[in-house]
Every structure is written in C-alpha cells, then in structure tokens.
C-alpha cells in the first residue's frame, strides 16, 4: 500500500500537539526557572532566529535549487522595517507581532521582484544578480539618513525573547513543512532537477519561482525582525558579504532541501561560532576550512534532502539488512 502523506491523521495531530507542549514547557523551564545561564539562553535565541533564516534560504537555495545570495538584503529589509515601526509607531510589545509581520511582508514584496531575474538567468549569473541586490540594499541603507545611514538604527525596543523566537520558528517550520509537501513543493523540486521538463509537464515555472522567492523572503524577513529586536540595534554592516556567507554555511552544513537540516545547520554553526569565539578573528579561518571539509566529505550537507523520518527509515533498513548477515557469521 502507499504511504498517505497528504492527510494528517488524528494520531499525528496528537503527536504534534505533544511535541508543541513539550517545547513550550521546556522553554518555560529554561527561562523562568533559570535552569540555564542567560548567555546560553541568548545562544538558544540566536539558534532559533538563524534557523528561521536558514529555512528561508533553504526554500530557494535548497528546494528550488537556485543559488541566490539575496538573503542579506531580505534580512535587512525585515530588520529595518520592523525596527522602524516599533521604534516610532508600535512602541508597545503587544504590537510586536504587527511589526514582525510588516517587516516580513515588506521583504516578501521585494522577494517577488527579486524572483523576476530568475526567469531568464540562472547559475552564476543569477548568483551575481542576487548578490547585487543584497549589496544595493546595504548601499542604500548606508546612505539613507532617516534610518541612521551607516550608523543604523539604535535603541530599538528589545521585544525579542525566547518565546517569540521559538513561536516564530514553529510557525516557520509549520509553513515550510506544509508548503514543501504540497504541489508547490513538489514543483520546486522538479524545477531543481530539470526546469525545462517541469515546464513541459505543465508546471508554471515562473509562478513557482515567484512564490518560492516570496515565501523565502518572508521567512528571512521574520528572522531579520527578530534579530533587530534582540540586539536593540541594527546597522548596514550586519548585512554584507560575511553575513551572506554565514547564511550559506548554515544551509549547506545542515543540508539543502531539509527542514531538520536547516535547524541542525543553524544550531551547529551557532555553537561552533560560540566555541570559536575565543579564537576571535581566527574563527573565520577555522570556519572557512570547516566549510571546505563539510563540502568535501558531505557535499549534500548532513541532512541533504532528508527529514528525520527518512533518516529513521534508512537506519531501520540498515539494521534489517544487517541481521541476516550476522546470522551467517554466527553459523
């Protein structure tokens, strides 16, 4: 019989509810009961925020298979729009969700525009166009006095806390999961493998690319909004080439085309960054070499095109295959 992955059974729903509850309780335990240090709590928030960013990048770079470098631009838009709003208009934390949404939607709208070059160009050419987009955004912000030019925005209300971060992360995982399992997600992966053939089996390639860029920008916008309200400031220098690389590392380390990979990539890289912090600027040397190592030994990343259930299935198959072998050896 076939696996029916289109319907969410009651069992599965209960499971999801249980996991949700477990995460919530853990967070409450961590934060309110001070089970961990504030600095560790901060690292957790970084991991959550960068996991959202990585999910967003993964939609275009992983599932759709387009090598885009636009994420720094989207993140900057999300951060600036939301920070500007909560600094001058929605100064109360009850309106934080509105600020986040506004930042994310602003990024989404720009994402639709950035999708247009991907209709005609691909590969290295598209990479340079999207890089151009990111650097143009950075350059514009450096010259825009009403958002502080190169000094950026300061005294942004620090609304972000661990609940907001993980609430948004769960939302992002939910959205991404549903999206990639739908006809849109299937079409993205088809385009990744063979764009022409997809178009010739009725997939509207331009529409799918537009939606993918929009959704990707939306999620990245959320991560930008959260980081601005976590640090209390944001400046153009945080959205340059190093930050573009940072995002790529998490995606390709964790694995392209994978939700669990995105979270893993973010967690692993943030922890590595923390561990390497004593190394100061040497961490970029180590990080760069690490990146080469990951690509050489795991060119698809740790979870390339795999989710947890795939991993369990593969492990199960391996175990099942081993058993008869063991029997022979014993006999």
């Amino acid at each position: 019989m076939t696996k029916k992955n289109y319907s969410t059974g009651k069992n599965e729903f209960l499971w999801q509810l249980a996991i949700l509850l477990a995460i919530t309780l853990t967070l409450i335990a961590l934060k309110e009961m001070r089970l961990v240090s504030t600095s560790f709590l901060l690292i957790l928030q970084y991991i959550g925020i960068y996991a959202i960013l990585t999910l967003g990048i993964n939609i275009v770079n992983g599932y759709l298979g387009v090598f885009s470098l636009a994420h720094a631009g989207f993140m900057a838009i999300g951060a600036y729009v939301s920070a500007y709003l909560s600094k001058y208009f929605f100064t109360d934390i009850t309106m934080f969700a509105v600020s986040i949404m506004a930042g994310a939607i602003a990024a989404l709208l720009v994402g639709i525009l950035v999708a247009i070059p991907s209709f005609k160009t691909k590969g290295d050419y598209l990479a340079i166009i999207t890089l151009g987009f990111s650097l143009i955004v950075q350059s514009l912000l450096q010259n825009a006095r009403f958002v502080g030019a190169s000094k950026g925005l300061n005294n942004i209300p620090k609304f972000t806390n661990i609940y907001w971060v993980f609430g948004c992360l769960l939302f992002a995982v939910f959205i991404t999961n549903r999206f990639v399992r739908s006809k849109y997600g299937r079409s993205m992966q088809a385009i990744r493998e063979d764009e022409t053939a997809s178009n010739l089996v009725s997939v509207d390639v331009r529409k799918i690319k537009t939606i993918a860029f929009a959704l990707s920008a939306f999620l990245i916008g959320i991560s930008g909004a959260l980081i601005g309200h976590l640090l209390g400031y944001t400046s153009p220098s945080a959205y340059g080439f190093v930050n573009i690389v940072d995002g790529l590392v998490m995606v390709y380390l964790g694995g392209t085309g994978s939700i669990v990979g995105s979270i893993f990539g973010s967690a692993a890289w943030q922890l590595i960054v923390q561990l390497l912090k004593q190394l100061d600027t040497w961490r970029w040397v180590v990080g760069g070499i690490l990146l080469i190592f990951v690509m050489v030994f795991l060119p698809k990343g740790v979870f390339g095109n795999m989710e947890l259930d795939d991993l369990f299935r593969i492990i199960k198959e391996k175990i099942n295959r081993k058993e008869p072998g063991r029997g022979i050896r014993n006999g």
Binding site: K183, Q189, D194, T196, A197, V201, S202, V203, D204
Partner: peptide
C-alpha cells in the same frame, strides 16, 4: 529521457498533475 530522477515514480506523476490540481 527527462524524468525527475531523484523523485519517486509516484512523485514524478504527481508533479505532472500541476495545472489541474
């Protein structure tokens, strides 16, 4: 032949249903 090689046979067919889903 231009199948989506990394996808299952069933997914290959499902993808082709795109326009009338």
């Amino acid at each position: 032949i231009r199948l989506f090689e990394d996808q299952t046979v069933l997914d290959n067919l499902k993808i082709a249903h795109f326009s009338h889903t």
